[in-house]
């Protein structure tokens, strides 16, 4: 009972704090500082139509590398926790899903995959990008796992895709140091025509890598949970 009272008091105190912030908050009417610079100069400087992408991949590219690392570490941690003991290595046999689901899988799987790839290839032009596209790819893999519970996706292949794309990401970042202004600078390649698919230097390449990495990472995470 006493514990509950303390919880309630803590919650009320936090609520008072929040209320104070919320009631004194007024919507901003203009940009300030660095955002102003990004909005005014960002498109010209980096050649990407989607400003969020320029911020994520180039201006704060190091953060994104850290973010990819965090995702990798959490996937590794989860698979460490969920590893199977050798002696309990019996295959779980589940009933096959119905023909309708299997047929839907063979029609929808390539389409969902293609959609994911489309999202991360167009990350510098439209809302979307590597992480979102990777999540869509992983959802296609999840669909596969649900519809065909007895087949598994090659774990080795996923791991290879993941580590290769992570490695290439870092190599591209270092290329930026050598050929352009700094780590993960996207102006290694030409900026191209603004708003076309092949533009914005390295950004599409990096987002393709991030998309592949996130997709394979989430896929192997889902597979671990299924086992």
């Amino acid at each position: 009972m006493l514990k509950r009272l303390f919880m309630l008091i803590a919650l009320v105190l936090i609520a008072i704090l929040f209320f104070d912030v919320a009631s004194n908050f007024t919507e901003r009417s203009e940009l300030s500082g660095i955002s102003q610079y990004y909005v005014e100069q960002g498109a010209e400087e980096l050649g990407a139509a989607n400003l969020v992408t320029s911020v994520v991949v180039t201006y704060r590219g190091l953060d994104t590398l850290g973010e990819v690392t965090v995702l990798f570490i959490s996937a590794a941690g989860a698979s460490l926790l969920l590893r199977r003991r050798r002696n309990t290595n019996k295959k779980l046999v589940v009933e096959e899903s119905s023909e309708i689901v299997q047929t839907t899988l063979s029609i929808m799987f390539p389409i969902i995959m293609l959609f994911g790839v489309y999202i991360f290839i167009n990350g510098h032009l439209t809302p979307g990008g590597g992480f979102q596209g990777g999540a869509v790819v992983a959802s296609a893999l999840l669909f596969f796992m649900l519809a065909r519970p007895n087949d598994s996706i090659s774990h080795k292949l996923l791991m290879k895709i993941e580590s290769l794309s992570g490695f290439t990401y870092v190599v591209l970042g270092v290329l930026g140091v050598i050929l352009a202004g700094g780590f993960l600078d996207n102006r290694v390649l030409g900026l191209g025509e603004f708003g076309s698919l092949f533009s914005a230097g390295l950004i599409p390449l990096i987002y393709i890598l991030v998309g592949l990495k996130v997709g394979s990472e989430l896929g192997s995470l889902l597979q671990k949970f299924r086992e």
Binding site: S35, Y38, V52, S54, V55, L71
Partner: peptide, 14 residues
């Protein structure tokens, strides 16, 4: 402001 959007993208993944 594009910066909070980019930060939220990071936060969602983490």
């Amino acid at each position: 402001d594009p910066v909070p959007s980019a930060l939220v993208l990071t936060a969602i993944v983490i």
